[in-house]
Design a protein around this nucleic acid. Structure first.
Length: 899
DNA sequence: TGTTCCCGCCAACGA
DNA sequence: TCGTTGGCGGGAACA
């Protein structure tokens, strides 16, 4: 009924309805958040190129607006107003949000219609209370109007990495109208963006869009500034003061028994040292400045976590404001505004810092962290560990380096490659010359799950490398992809995303250190943990069978994966404004996947599947053969392959897969299935190491949001069984469960797991459950390792039956996985001549439609003569389970090193 | 009840 | 003078 009324009215006189709307809003039309109605005015999401004449919109008054509008800004008005056309425009042009609003609007419209074509502001008076109530009910929720969501919409309008020749001008008026909000809101967004140089003011009401091109540079500068400002010290000081204060308040008086005067000051903001606020200028308090300072705090913070109260206090000090409570509140409000925008940019995410004194709202930096190093530095860093890196790993680094150079630098990918190549050529310790066997791989799920060789005896050199070698979160799994597609960025980082969705991802295992639990290999090197503390990067050492550290990485991974979907992944590409909202997408993610088409499922798997880490053995030709593309695999060719097929050349594929070692692949489709395929093929090639499956449960340490990681280490049918001489993959389904769920599980070690490990010196016996001490996790930390079928609830489903349904996310780690430090990486001739692995990020979670197919990075660096012929196949499947409460990850790690 | 942050008043700014 | 910009804080939605 209501809908009919609405339609009827619109059909009769669509323009009229618009007028009605204006009237309804009355004077507040310009002040209020009128996007609801404005959407009607601009049913079609305005594009940059569609200037909107505000002047015309401002005359939406019955008096001034002729029945027949002189000129309609909306395309919809220019079209014939047939019932069908009108309806079409309204529905098709509108975003989900807009549709919702339309719906709501519709509920209200019947009343308007009552009084005829023309209504005036008084019309509202005749609206019954019930109608008003109805309207109220239908009104967009607070969240729908949040700045974060608005920012996403804003960002969705522009490409993350616009072409240098592409000059995009932003008209605040236009944006405000198109987004249906008052300009005031746009200012908030633009100010923050401007602080990061994503935009710059061109003229009154006009901003220029720069995108993320210079973001790394900007962040680098901010970090430098932050260091100069000694923000870190300030934060530490404040935190210390707070801590002391809280202790005092909690009755834990200090030995002197007297409350510290400083504490008191902190408590009541009566700090006398603060200069008068009179000295502040309006500009000093600008959101722009605040935003930059806020970002600086993250950049200089070791934990990359900043609590709002600390940030607010520092800002108050900085602004020389009188530290009263009111000021504090105001600062916090502004910080939320800033945080919303930064969150939309996927630079930070909301977290809570739980301390003895309670939970405190805070934000964690999830943006790039390696911007501090220049392109040259990056290469240098890579080179610094060359002696310790195997060719493959090195190649991965090259890829990363190239990627970065291409993205962050002002050069093209080719140029980046050349630069790197030059660097390599001049590097005497090139991996080509010095390949070493000992060591494992560390998988940093953190930013991109880049795989690095982990030397057992970490050296300072390695530490530096590890700490530095952090891929920007924005770095999609697809190295070739632009840093971030705006659509992607905004989407996956969307404010409105249900937290549970990222429950796993938001978990951080800061100090995860296991002392060679298994054969002294199942551990995250303390060095790594320590060095990576800042970034809270999880690390998985190939040499150490199972070490999974959930963290932001997952979050970022998710984002990266989604990024893969982003149409605008390629540099300079335009974002697709129509990209579904994160919320919507997430909602879909939660839906059962059973009935979805493979292609669709793939995308879903991508998001829903448990995360699987695949650490393939050393690449070999056999692996190449094992490629999913082989005929026998055709039946169950992973979607990813399909994608690859569509996107990658046959020659590249092998390398691409090999590169999985370096990056988390975005292969969503049927991870397990994929694995199986690979396995089957590999089995034919004399897989010496049976796939291992184990569960590794790690209770998150304090401060990690109470999340635990449960990795399945049991034998997994899907586990890849690499051929002998190859590094078998270890399939390790895992789940991440909230601490409370698992309580304090003892570490169980599954015999199955022992097998592979046992082969290596120091491997754990196949004995029963074993408790692994996780120093970094505290006493409560436990490791639960067992057969997949034993623990993982999902694992049952995971199996071959329909792997895609399970779609565990898997990461393929680098091939070489020496079980023991004594084991030397096989430097088979083949391998020696082996091309550097290439990062391949395949699939996009999106269905494989021509449109969805994006370029994935599949370039190979430093292909040696022999490289072309011996592709290393590394299957990497990864699925991220976005279950509300848990995520399952599947780890495939080369069970052993073949000889 | 505390957190989060929308909303819009109104003053600074600047053409 | 007037339009733009944006600081600011009340107060309501939300958790």
């Amino acid at each position: 009924m209501e809908v009919n009324c609405l339609t009827l009215k619109d059909l009769i006189n669509p323009r009229q309805s618009r007028l009605d709307f204006a009237i309804e809003d009355g004077e507040n039309a310009q002040k209020e958040n009128i996007f609801v109605d404005r959407s009607r005015m601009a049913p079609k999401t305005p594009i940059k190129n569609e200037p909107i004449d505000l002047s015309k919109q401002k005359i939406f008054t019955p008096e001034r607006n002729p029945i027949t509008p002189v000129k309609l800004v909306d395309r919809q008005q220019a079209e014939p107003w047939t019932p069908t056309a009108n309806l079409k425009v309204l529905i098709s042009a509108a975003s989900p949000d807009i549709r919702d609003r339309e719906k709501k609007k519709g509920l209200f419209r019947p009343i308007e219609n009552k009084d005829g074509a023309f209504t005036d502001s008084l019309q509202l008076d005749v609206v019954g209370d019930s109608a008003v109530d109805e309207f109220e009910k239908q009104r967009p929720s607070r969240k729908q109007k949040s700045l974060g969501l608005l920012c996403q919409k804003f960002l969705a309008r522009y490409p993350s990495y616009p072409l240098s020749t592409e000059k995009t001008t932003i008209s605040l008026d236009e944006v405000a109208v198109s987004l249906g909000v008052e300009r005031r809101r746009i200012y908030d967004i633009v100010n923050v963006l401007e602080s990061l140089h994503l935009v710059s003011r061109v003229a009154k009401n006009q901003y220029g869009w720069h995108g993320r091109q210079s973001l790394p540079k900007t962040l680098r500068s901010l970090q430098r500034l932050g260091e100069e400002q000694k923000y870190e010290e300030q934060m530490a000081h404040l935190q210390q003061k707070e801590l002391e204060l809280m202790d005092y308040k909690l009755g834990e008086r200090k030995k002197d028994g007297c409350p510290d005067s400083q504490d008191q000051q902190l408590l009541d903001f009566s700090e006398p040292d603060y200069p008068s606020s009179s000295a502040n200028s309006r500009k000093d308090k600008s959101l722009r400045i605040m935003s930059q300072k806020f970002v600086m705090l993250f950049l200089v913070s070791k934990t990359k976590i900043v609590t709002l109260d600390v940030a607010a206090k520092i800002l108050i000090e900085e602004s020389q404001d009188t530290p009263d409570h009111s000021k504090f509140k105001t600062k916090v409000r502004r910080l939320y505004d800033i945080a919303n925008v930064l969150t939309s940019l996927a630079l930070i995410k909301k977290v809570h810092v739980t301390e003895e004194r309670g939970r405190k709202p805070a934000f964690k930096w999830i943006g790039p962290v390696d911007f501090s190093s220049s392109d040259e530095e990056l290469v240098d860093v890579s080179a610094s560990v060359l002696p310790e890196l195997k060719r493959e790993t090195y190649g991965q680094i090259q890829v990363c380096a190239k990627q970065r150079l291409a993205r962050h630098g002002s050069f093209s990918t080719v140029q980046a490659s050349e630069r790197i190549q030059r660097k390599v050529n001049s590097e005497p310790s090139s991996p080509y010359k010095e390949e070493q066997g000992s060591g494992g791989y560390s998988l940093e799920i953190g930013s991109l799950a880049a795989v690095y060789r982990q030397k057992i005896e970490d050296s300072s050199q390695r530490k530096a490398f590890v700490s530095k070698r952090v891929m920007p979160p924005s770095g999609s799994l697809d190295p070739a992809a632009p840093f971030h597609g705006l659509s992607v960025d905004s989407e996956y980082s969307a404010n409105p995303l249900p937290h549970q969705v990222f429950s796993v991802a938001q978990t951080d295992l800061q100090a995860f250190s296991m002392q060679n639990s298994l054969t002294g290999r199942m551990s995250v090197s303390p060095a790594l943990a320590a060095s990576d503390m800042e970034t809270l990067k999880p690390a998985l050492l190939a040499g150490q069978p199972v070490v999974y550290v959930p963290s932001t990485s997952l979050f970022m991974l998710y984002g990266s994966l989604q990024e893969g979907l982003s149409p605008g992944s390629s540099s300079g590409s335009e974002r697709d404004p129509s990209t579904p909202s994160v919320q919507k997408r997430l909602g879909e993610e939660k839906r059962p996947q059973e009935e979805e088409p493979a292609t669709k499922r793939q995308s879903r798997d991508y998001e829903d599947s448990p995360l699987a880490l695949v650490v393939p053995k050393k690449p070999s030709e056999s692996t190449v053969v094992a490629s999913p593309r082989t005929p026998h695999n055709s039946g169950s060719v992973p979607l990813e392959d399909i994608h690859m097929e569509a996107q990658v050349s046959a020659a590249e594929e092998p390398s691409a897969k090999a590169t999985a070692n370096c990056f988390v692949s975005s292969e969503w489709g049927n991870p397990s299935g994929d694995t199986e395929i690979e396995k089957s093929s590999k089995e034919n090639e004399s897989t010496k190491e049976p796939s291992l499956q184990q569960y590794l449960y790690v209770q998150s340490p304090a401060g990690l949001n109470g999340f635990n990681v449960l990795l399945s280490g049991g034998q997994n049918p899907h586990a890849v069984g690499p051929p002998s001489g190859q590094l078998p993959s270890l399939s390790i389904p895992c789940m991440v469960l909230p601490s409370p769920t698992l309580g304090s599980f003892p570490v169980l070690y599954s015999p199955t797991m022992a097998r592979p490990l046992s082969s290596a010196p120091g491997a754990l016996p196949n004995a029963g459950p074993v408790n692994f001490g996780l120093p970094g996790l505290g006493s409560t930390a436990h490791l639960l390792i067992g057969p997949a079928n034993m623990v993982n609830p999902k694992s049952s489903a995971l199996p071959s039956a329909d792997p895609q349904l399970q779609g565990p996310l898997s990461l393929n780690m680098s091939p070489e996985m020496p079980r023991s430090h004594n084991i030397i990486q096989p430097e088979s001739p083949v391998y020696a001549g082996h091309p550097v692995p290439i990062v391949k990020l395949q699939q996009s979670p999106v269905p494989v439609t021509p449109k969805s197919i994006r370029r994935t990075h599949r370039e190979t660096f430093f292909k040696t003569p022999g490289s072309l012929g011996d592709p290393v196949l590394r299957r990497r499947e990864r699925n991220l389970t976005r279950n509300t409460s848990s995520a399952q990850r599947r780890l495939e790690i080369p069970s052993s090193e073949a000889d």
